[in-house]
């Protein structure tokens, strides 16, 4: 359907952001990965550390969903579904971790 739209669409706006924005996000994603890796290398454990790990994972996921997948400009249902999935999975992992602490 979109194939028949005006070929000048990109001249009016971009659905995929700017190269600069994509590059800044890439730098943030790599920096966040290095934090997660160093937590692992230092043997970090416990609820605070696991909370940090999944807060980082959620933040990275949100950047992928909203910017790289370009759902920021999609009908609201789609970013909400994807972010809802991230929230649910991270929350349930947290509950499972807590259950393991109590066991």
């Amino acid at each position: 359907m979109r194939n028949h739209e005006s070929p000048t669409r990109a001249l009016h706006h971009s659905d995929h952001g700017t190269p600069l924005r994509a590059t800044v996000i890439w730098v943030v994603l790599i920096a966040a990965t290095i934090v997660t890796w160093s937590v692992g290398e230092n043997g970090g454990s416990g609820p605070a550390v696991v909370g940090l790990l999944f807060a980082i994972a959620f933040g990275k996921g949100a950047l992928i969903i909203l910017d790289y997948m370009a759902l920021r400009r999609a009908p609201l249902m789609w970013p909400l579904l994807a972010l809802g999935w991230m929230t649910l999975v991270c929350a349930l992992i947290g509950i499972a971790y807590w259950k393991g602490l109590a066991a």
């Binding site: 400009r73 999609a74 789609w78």
Partner: peptide, 25 residues
């Protein structure tokens, strides 16, 4: 050219103000 096309001044308002521009890629 790519940068200019994507961030040209005419681009920003169309996205920010026009709700109908929402589109699933």
């Amino acid at each position: 050219t790519c940068v200019q096309t994507l961030v040209s001044p005419s681009a920003a308002p169309a996205v920010a103000s026009d709700g109908s521009a929402r589109r699933l890629p």
